[in-house]
Design a protein around this nucleic acid. Sequence first.
DNA 1: TTTAGATTGTTATAATATAACACTATGTAA
DNA 2: TTACATAGTGTTATATTATAACAATCTAAA
Lengths: 130, 130
Amino acid sequence: MHKEHTLTKNQQIIFDLIDKSPEPMKAYSILFNVQKKGIKAPLQVYRALDKLVEIGKIHKIESRNAFIACHNSSCQVSKATAFSICEICEKVTEISSTGLSKYLANFKDKDGMKYSKYNLEFFGLCKKCR
Amino acid sequence: MHKEHTLTKNQQIIFDLIDKSPEPMKAYSILFNVQKKGIKAPLQVYRALDKLVEIGKIHKIESRNAFIACHNSSCQVSKATAFSICEICEKVTEISSTGLSKYLANFKDKDGMKYSKYNLEFFGLCKKCR
DNA sequence: TTTAGATTGTTATAATATAACACTATGTAA
DNA sequence: TTACATAGTGTTATATTATAACAATCTAAA
C-alpha cells in the first residue's frame, strides 16, 4: 500500500496527466502537455518524475524511457515492478501476480545473494495485435 | 547456443572492446575508445551495437544505457536476459539460473498471455559493497 | 556477373537528461 | 514567533543518448 504523500503543485499536475494517459508518457511529451499550466522547463518535469518514481506513484518503463501511473495498490513502492509490453502497439500493462512477485522477491543467485529491488519487462504481442 | 555470425570489421572492433571490459560500456565511451581504429561517428557505434544485440553477442542494460558481452552460452539469443546490478559500484553480472529462466519462460499472466521475450534487472549490493 | 541486401561513412539533428545557482515555501523546534 | 533545515521552484545552459537521410561500397547467392 502506498504511504500517503502530499504532492506539490508540479508533482500533482504531472501525476494527473500520466494517470489519465492510457499509455506510457515520455518526458518531453509531458512537458509539452503541461506548458499551459506554467511548467516550462525539462528540469521541472524531470524533478517531479524523479519524486513520483521514488514514492511509487509512477514507474519508469526503462526500455521505452516512458512513465506510467502505478495501479497496483499492493506494489512495494517501486521496489518490485513487472510489465508486459506489446511490441506492435506498445501497450504496457503492469503485472500484478502474487506468484511472480513472491518468486522474484525470494530469488537468490548462485552466490546466495538476495536483491532489494527488481524490474522485469516482458515483451510479446497483446490480444489485439495477435 | 549462439548461432555463428561472421562479424564485420566495425562489429568485431566494438565487440572486442566490450568483451574485454570488466564493466558495462556506454556508447560514447565506446566511441571514444575506438576512434583510433577509424570509427569516428556515433552512428557507426550504434549500428554495430544494434547488430550485436540482435545476434545475442552483447546485451543492453536498460536501466544504465550500457552494454555488456554475453557470457552465457545457453542464453536464447537475447530473448531472455537477467542481470544483477550493484547500486554502489555499478557492477553488473548476467544471471544464468535454469530455474529462473524456466519460470519466466513459462510465466503466463492473468489473461493467459505468454511472452516471447523478457528482460529482468535485479538491484542490490554486491559482495564487496555489503 | 548481376543484383539484392547489408554495411559503411558522413553530416546534421532529434530526443533524453542533468549541472549550477539563486530564490521560495513549508514544517518543526527553540 | 523566529530561525533553521529541508524540499521544491524557476531559469539558463549544457551534457548525454540516439536517429534521419543519403550516397558509396561490400558481399553472398542466383
